[in-house]
Amino acid sequence: MRSLLEINELTKYFPVKTGLFGRVVGYVRAVDGVSFKISEGAVFALVGESGSGKTTILRCVLRLTEPTSGEILIEGRNVTQLRGKDLKWFRRNVQAVFQNPYLSLNPRMKVKDLIAEPLKTHTNVSKNEVYRKVAEVLALVGLPEIVANQYPPNLSGGQAQRVAIARALSIEPKLLLLDEPTSALDVSVQAQILNLLVELKEKLGLTYLLVTHDLSVVRYMSDYIAVMYLGKIMEIGTAEEIFSEPKHPYTLALLSSVPELNPQAKKLKKKIILPGEPPSPMNPPSGCRLSNRCPYATKECVTEEPKLTKITETHYVRCLRHEDLSSLITREA
């Protein structure tokens, strides 16, 4: 299948300046050589904790921040170099939904005008047509008609997030970027939004790039998963591979840190609790970036930087000890 989005060796360094003279004293390596592809119709999830670089990647794709190096191709076109007609095409076909709908929706605009806005800017549908389309999209995301005349502050969190989704979808984009789309919502509302996103994807043939720290959401939704830590992909594979055969200690730690609902499953689960917290991306540890927290680290891990190593056609891992890992874990259990 053709890739809709292709990211090659993407790097983004942010300069760190001293207060007084603004001298650059170092760089935060927020994204450090990241590559992946998303084929049309797939759901690709970037998973990681704060500081892992996932949101920076998303911002690069959205052209909100300029990469330091590397390329981002959408349908083969270089995103950073888009001009004129291509740029218009991009703006229409790449849309985003963010974590907090109240921040991303203008509180003084009625819902119908919020949804009409992208239609007016990006398409040349007539005025009558615009509001017919608005009604259609509202129905699509499961909002009652009366919401059209309300303002965002008067909507519940779930309703507001539906409006944000409706707004993004009104102009029929190909790629939807989802940045923690449900983490500000209550469990029962989260389920509604996740169901809606899955439904819309099937109905409209959308492609999703999902950014989240919540693994339980990821498994349910995604085809492919990249696990990030301090700017690098530590493991990448199909959802099945990541969840059933995780090969990286960090992936294991992430998986085991999700509070397990089922008490029986909990008894079987081995908990890996990483000591400490992620170091500053300004000076990551030498060798493997997890080496100072990894329970399985050896001397080599501190000196040698592991490469992304192939396990299957779709599954890659960045760990020097990935081959020993399964035996290490079973021995401990």
Partner: peptide
């Protein structure tokens, strides 16, 4: 009962979540 069914669990791979 509804709330528990709405929680996406890590072992769930497909199908709809139930919501309230």
């Amino acid at each position: 009962a509804k709330l528990i069914k709405a929680v996406p669990i890590i072992t769930k791979t497909q199908g709809r979540l139930s919501h309230i």
